[in-house]
Each structure stands twice: as C-alpha cells, then as structure tokens.
C-alpha cells in the first residue's frame, strides 16, 4: 500500500523576518519601484541592441543551414527572442514582448522550417529592430498596432 502523504507545518520564516509598519512597501513605494525600472530604460536599450545583434547572427546561421538541420539553428533564435520577450515589457517596450511572443509561438508550432517560414522569422527580427530603432514604447501606438497586425496576417497566410 502506498505511504500516506505527510503534511508538515513549516514555520513561516519569511513572516517571522518581516515587520509591518509605515516604512514598509506600500502603494507609494511600489510606484517608486516602477519609476526605478523606468529609469533603467536607457540601459535596457543598450542591452537590447546586443540582443538584436545576437538575434541577427542566429538568423544568418539558420538561413545558411540546410533545411533538414535547420530546427536546431532556429532553436537559437527562439532562445534569444524568448529572453527578449520576457524583458521588453518590464521596460515599457511591450511591443518587443508582443513581437517576441508571436515569433516564439510561430517557432514552437513547427518542427521544420522552409524558405517561406524563414522569411516569416526574418520579418519578426526586422520588426523587433524597428521597434527599438523607432523607440516604440508602450503599445507602439497606431504604427505599432499596424506592425503587429501585419505580422499576424503573414503568420496566418503561412499557416493556411
């Protein structure tokens, strides 16, 4: 017979070490923390330019790779764009998160990548470069939304 699970009451060490008071984290403190992240935006732009360079290199390698060996090369594109997707929104570059999500979902849904599919990936890489080059913060406004719609239309076309 399987052993009965044991439920253990663990002392709440975290609670024991925090105190509640006027100097704690309140709504105002959270706003200040958000402002500190916003202040990191210039640093983010330098990081993300490095990420874009790595992304372009990974794309170049994947394009130069024979189609049957391409999935492994495309995986490198996925890893970089996945990191970028996870960071953009924190620094008010939600467009990087959205384009990154489209690209990651596109790659994850496929086991192989022909020339047409590589063109879709290339367009996403270009879109990310445009977002950063044009400093499309937030939702990117009307140009940003048009860009997203365009990418979604391209994906829909290839996925038919």
């Amino acid at each position: 017979m399987a052993k009965e699970p044991v439920i253990i009451e663990v002392p709440n060490r975290l609670k024991a070490k925090v105190s509640y008071g006027p100097d704690g984290v309140d709504a105002q403190r959270l706003e200040q923390a958000e402002a500190m992240i916003s202040a990191l935006a210039p640093e983010y732009l330098s990081w993300v330019i490095d990420d874009l360079k790595r992304l372009q290199s990974a794309l170049d390698v994947a394009l130069a790779t024979a189609e049957d060996a391409r999935p492994a090369a495309v995986r490198a594109i996925f890893e970089i764009s996945h990191d970028m997707k996870g960071q953009g929104g924190s620094f008010n570059y939600g467009m990087i998160t959205q384009v990154g999500a489209l690209l990651c979902n596109f790659i994850e849904a496929r086991a192989s990548f022909d020339a047409q599919e590589m063109e879709v990936i290339r367009l996403h890489v270009e879109a990310m470069r445009l977002v950063i080059g044009q400093k499309m913060e937030g939702d990117g406004g009307r140009p940003g939304q048009s860009l997203l719609k365009g990418l979604q239309a391209v994906i829909a076309k290839v996925s038919r």
Partner: peptide, 10 residues
Amino acid sequence: MGGYSLERLN
C-alpha cells in the same frame, strides 16, 4: 499607510 518591511530578508 503601511506595508511589509523586507529589510531583514536574505
């Protein structure tokens, strides 16, 4: 207004 102070946390 108050909140949790996390200064002793590792």
